[in-house]
Amino acid sequence: MAFLFIGMTGLSTVWSACSPQTVRQDTSVTVERRLAMMGTDLTVTVEAVSRSAALMASERAIRALEETESRLSTWREDTELARFNRTEPGQPVWLSPRLYADLAAARRWWKETDGAFDPGIGALIEAWGLRQGFRVPAPETLQKALSGGGLGNLVLEDRKAVRLRETMKIEEGGFGKGIGLDEALRVMAGSGVTNGKIDLGGQVIVMGGKPTPISVAHPDRRDEPVIEIVIDQGSVATSGNSERGIVIDGVRYGHILDPKTGSPTHDFGSLTVWAPDATTADCLSTGLYVLGPDGALAWAAGRTNIEVLVLERTATGLRARATPGWKPRMARVAKNVVIAFGS
């Protein structure tokens, strides 16, 4: 009898193995995957008509992100973008249709933000040593990195691109995740997928129309949610210095650089953007952070389909300012936050 009981327990253990983390709601099944990807961690949640459909859809999304990384990462030497950054200045080179489209999308938001979003500042990132930790560059080093950098020195025409100056190096940090998420969602759609959510290091994209709560963290403590927003489509991206800020000789520096001055921007807190697609949300969260709280809200005031939330540190806590479109889908979850809607 005892043996039978142990046997049944073993069987139930195996049975539970056959439906890991599976939530059955009517006829849909939810699968969650967690991996390391694009310099951060990735969670893919897929709801589909069957577990096999959900697994296949999640894998397609993961492969799309891997493909984006192998095209855009400048942490590796062998990607198309890294190779482009090493091309001879002034020499036109053919780009793959994908990379050409990626750079065209980035350039669109560079123009729309009047250069506040500028991924062509790879030389500045090197000068500040942002990938190795942080260092304050000598003035002449900074000047050299600043002059000739930026997307103003990139020509895109007829599937070809030209770097006009050696210091024009493209850094994918401000747009690569967004492009990867859009592609991941595109390949995941269909195939019996009813709802999907992809979280790539805090930038989230959702599909399917299911209300999805997303926490916005305290600018200094990423584990402390202060505001919750609910979205049923599109993408949310947040920029801020969080744990990446550094204090040198009593001065606090952030890692987001102002492309016009070449120096770190004022570290006011964090800025969150919702947009219908992840590339837009990614580019704008960086670009509008550079504009600062007032500039960002003024920029967004005249736009449709873009929502902005600014979190600023105050003496007593946090002040949240948000575009009016957030109003029905935003709630405070921390006591010391005051929310105001409108610019």
Binding site: L35, A36, M37, M38, T40, D41, G201, D223
Partner: peptide, 26 residues
């Protein structure tokens, strides 16, 4: 080539965090 968490039983706050796991890639 790939690091995937296939089972995790601690509370979620102990999961490897953003910008950390990928340090191992490559």
């Amino acid at each position: 080539q790939r690091i995937e968490i296939i089972a995790f039983h601690e509370p979620r706050e102990y999961l490897p965090r953003p910008a950390w796991l990928q340090q191992f890639a490559g």
